[in-house]
């Protein structure tokens, strides 16, 4: 009989909640308190109920109460999100984009110059590219060790993250950072904190592509 009462209250509230926009904060608080009361009662009934079927009905009703709680929560969240969005600082999109273009472009120019020099010395193009990447990785690792690469990153954003130097930075920086936790669990385990996902999904995509070509061949 108590259960019926709660059920009725829940139904009634469902109608009220349609007009939640017209409620003031005190009224919303009251609704929240009633929801809490119903919820506690239902948990209590559930703990006492032995019949499987009764338990199920109680649980369904409890889920309905949770839904209503979520609805109130969502309403308050959306209302606040509007306020937050209004006062959110503007992202300097143009400045960031120019910085990314400049930093990314410059890193690639350095790479190209190194590549040109190696090719001029008679190394075939494919090997020359591999050597260039190695040199770039080395430069980035050194700059990371000297504490300079994070400053470049603060300015360049994606411009310093996207080139292979960013990948090297993502491996060297956790290695440095976790040195104090030791060589096995520190450097050893943490070195892939950020680059690990690259290796995982790199393996995945490479095998998918390889198998696809193997099958259609």
């Amino acid at each position: 009989m108590d259960l019926k009462e709660i059920n009725m209250r829940v139904q009634e509230r469902q109608r009220d909640l349609l007009q939640i926009k017209n409620f003031n904060d005190a009224e919303i608080q009251l609704i929240n308190e009633e929801l809490q009361k119903d919820y506690q009662k239902l948990v209590l009934f559930e703990s006492k109920a032995n019949d499987k079927e009764v338990r199920l009905t109680i649980k369904n009703l409890r889920n309905k109460v949770i839904e209503q709680q979520d609805l109130v929560k969502k309403y308050l969240q959306i209302r606040y999100a509007r306020l937050v969005n209004k006062s959110a600082p503007k992202i300097p999109v143009l400045k960031n984009a120019l910085a990314a273009f400049f930093v990314g472009g410059t890193i690639c120019v350095i790479g190209q110059i190194i590549l040109n020099v190696i090719v001029l010395n008679g190394v075939p193009n494919k090997e020359a590219t591999a050597i260039t990447l190695m040199v770039m990785v080395f430069i980035s690792a050194l700059l990371t060790g000297l504490g300079i690469y994070d400053e470049i990153g603060r300015f360049g954003g994606a411009g310093s993250m996207v080139p292979i130097t960013g990948f090297a930075n993502s491996i060297v920086s956790p290695a440095l950072e976790y040195k104090r936790e030791g060589y096995v669990y520190g450097i050893g385990a943490k070195v892939f904190t950020i680059a690990g996902p690259v290796l995982l999904y790199g393996s995945l995509i490479s095998v998918i592509i390889g198998l696809t070509f193997y099958i259609i061949k």
Partner: peptide
């Protein structure tokens, strides 16, 4: 410079 810059800007 051009291609490298553009690829990075997309990410930004």
């Amino acid at each position: 410079f051009l291609i490298g810059g553009i690829i990075c800007v997309i990410g930004q």
